[in-house]
């Protein structure tokens, strides 16, 4: 079944049955797959890498929001 019908106050509503919502995406999830490494020997590399290394590895883990629209 691809669709399920859910009862709503405005009658039946077609709702698609989602596939596993927490399955990993394909592509670069596999470390060896994906397009070739981009050219990183640009003048910006060092500055950007420094900026990226300063990011707290747990920043996303600590970041919490309420659901919005």
């Amino acid at each position: 079944m691809k669709y399920e019908y859910v009862k709503a106050d405005r009658g039946l509503e077609r709702k698609e049955r989602p596939f596993d919502p927490l399955s990993k995406p394909s592509g670069p999830g596999d470390q060896e797959s994906g397009p070739k490494r981009p050219d990183t020997d640009s003048p910006s590399r060092d500055n950007l890498m420094k900026r990226m290394r300063k990011v707290d590895p747990k920043q996303a883990e600590k970041y919490r929001q309420r659901t919005g629209e």
Partner: peptide, 27 residues
């Protein structure tokens, strides 16, 4: 974003499931 993260991932020898990458995504 992919370019930035892939560059970092290779430089730091970390996998795509390393929590650091989600933090970089946020930043």
């Amino acid at each position: 974003k992919w370019w930035l993260l892939e560059t970092f991932r290779q430089a730091e020898h970390i996998g795509w499931d390393d929590p650091w990458l989600a933090s970089l995504d946020l930043e």
